[in-house]
Design a protein around this nucleic acid. Structure first.
Length: 263
DNA sequence: TTATATGTTCGATA
DNA sequence: TTATCGAACATATA
């Protein structure tokens, strides 16, 4: 689920669910403790008795600042999400971490595959730089998008997914952008011309904005969106004679319309 | 049982 | 040293 638009919507959800509510208790529900990149005791100490003042997002990474100072960071991996629940019995399946608020409500961090991260950080921007991630896709200029891609000698799709250039693009958005611009995902990034790169940037921003406007409910996306046909053999209405093909690019499942995206 | 999954990291290799 | 590639992570679902 969680690419840039999904995390933006999770940010709104977090703000509604958590901002300004005092935290009474913290719950840990991952037996392997893999997702807690800050130890549980420190998380508990930093969160209990305080509340969240603000929330911010960089790419797919979410951060909420506590009144005490440190920020709680969530990364949602492949399957992470947030969900409110009202009592112990109602705790969602796959809850790994939970916050109990003063009003009796609870917020769950759910993550079936456990690729997610829960961690304390000093500041979102410092963390971003330390981890080597690029700036948020929706805050960069066209030049900041284009320049790093021109230097990459790898498949354009792989470069788009690399969070160190700019953060936020994931697997379905990359396929969506490449389809709309008619670029084959295996074309070398360095081989794209200026027009193609400009078009990719414009599409990336528009796709994200549209998805956010629809609360990332795929069913509400415009019917020309490629994500609706992103499976082998599907027929996009604009290309009824060119069934969707599946490739593997950079280890990720990749879908194209062969008639439109050629090497 | 096998294949796939909207992400990232780390080790090997060039 | 740096860029690139591919396996690994843990689990659910079809």
């Amino acid at each position: 689920m969680p690419e840039l638009p999904e995390v933006e919507v999770l940010k709104y959800y977090f703000e509604e669910a958590a901002l300004g509510k005092t935290i009474r208790a913290v719950g840990f529900h991952d037996k392997l403790n893999k997702i807690f990149k800050t130890d549980k005791q420190s998380l508990q100490n930093a969160l209990t008795g305080t509340c969240f003042e603000q929330c911010t997002r960089i790419g797919k990474y979410l951060f909420a600042q506590t009144e005490k100072g440190p920020w709680l960071h969530f990364h949602f991996g492949m399957t992470g999400s947030l969900e409110l629940f009202m009592n112990e019995a109602g705790m969602p399946r796959f809850t790994r971490f939970s916050l109990l608020f003063e009003d009796g409500s609870n917020l769950a961090f759910t993550d079936s595959r456990k690729f997610g991260v829960v961690k304390l950080v000093e500041s979102p921007e410092a963390y971003r730089r330390q981890q080597g991630f690029g700036k948020d896709l929706l805050t960069i200029t066209e030049e900041e998008f284009i320049t790093p891609l021109q230097k990459r000698n790898i498949a354009i799709k792989t470069a788009l997914l690399d969070q160190k250039h700019f953060a936020g693009i994931g697997n379905w958005i990359a396929d969506e952008m490449l389809f709309e611009t008619g670029v084959h995902p295996e074309k070398k990034a360095s081989a794209l011309d200026q027009e193609e790169l400009k078009a990719l940037f414009e599409k990336a921003v528009n796709i994200c904005k549209e998805a956010i406007a629809k609360d990332t409910h795929y069913g509400d996306f415009p019917c020309h969106f490629f994500v609706h046909y992103r499976k082998e053999g599907a027929l996009h209405p604009a290309h009824p004679k060119s069934p969707v093909e599946r490739l593997v690019v950079g280890g990720r499942g990749t879908f194209i319309v062969p008639e439109k995206q050629k090497l």
